[in-house]
Amino acid sequence: MKTVITSSDKSFINFGELKRYGSLFRYLSLRDVFVRYKQTRMGFAWSIVRPVVNILIFGALRFLVEKSNSFIDSFILVSTGIVFWQLLSTTITDVSNSLSANSNILTKVYFPKLLLPLSGILVCLVDFLIAFVIFFVLFLIFKGMPPWQIVFLPLVIIYGLVFCFSLGLISATASVKYRDIKFILPFLIQILFYASPVFLSSDFVLGLNMPEWFKVIYQANPLVFILNAFKYCFTGTFESFNMVYAASSVVFTLVMLFISIKYFFNFEKSFADYI
């Protein structure tokens, strides 16, 4: 086996290599899962507490704002958004932190660095699954069987993860050189939270009396489509569905995925110099 190193090495996704490092991917993910709630009294219960608190706060808020829903319905409707949002936002954050959090490995040993952001996703998924199971049971109790559209659920989750992974990957790569990202990201996530139908339905927002251009901006946010698609799996009705925005969300996500990977690999070889 011959390996050549030159100054002009450009890397791109090397699937053979990723496969050879499969066990590293597994142990990095397992480490993140094991360590997340180490030395906490409640352990994995935390992955339920966080969404539950949010559901209580924003369910009440929704009840106050959108007066049309019943009290219980407000909480059920909000919980769909919150549970999925929790997955999306933690994925963005964890993927984004994955490089700087592992700088000690990055500067000491060679491995395909894409494994770090990838392994960041898995913890978020574990957290999500725990919260989701609880949510699903409650949903069955209060709402009965979900409609047939539930079969789209895995697709929607993967789609949402792709979007968040791309966004996280761009900010992870940028944060190797510019630590400013660390401070910008929480703001960005907070903005996305309010700019997406997490606790207010998009129908409600679009029904408000505001200029047309603002509605265009609101709907251009790819997360509007992603979150509504998730709710669609449980309600069977697609809120404020619009073919143009749906298509633009998909295109935007794919373009961003491509750009983020390109950007990542352009800088991959210099990570150790900057981090």
Partner: peptide, 28 residues
């Protein structure tokens, strides 16, 4: 550079076989 952690500014390296580097004990 040999262990492919940083990239050289110029030049070329070839090596044959599997390489492992131990720049620190207990990495990770």
């Amino acid at each position: 550079i040999l262990s492919r952690i940083v990239k050289p500014s110029s030049g070329r390296i070839e090596y044959y076989g599997r390489m492992a580097s131990l720049l620190e004990v207990g990495t990770g």
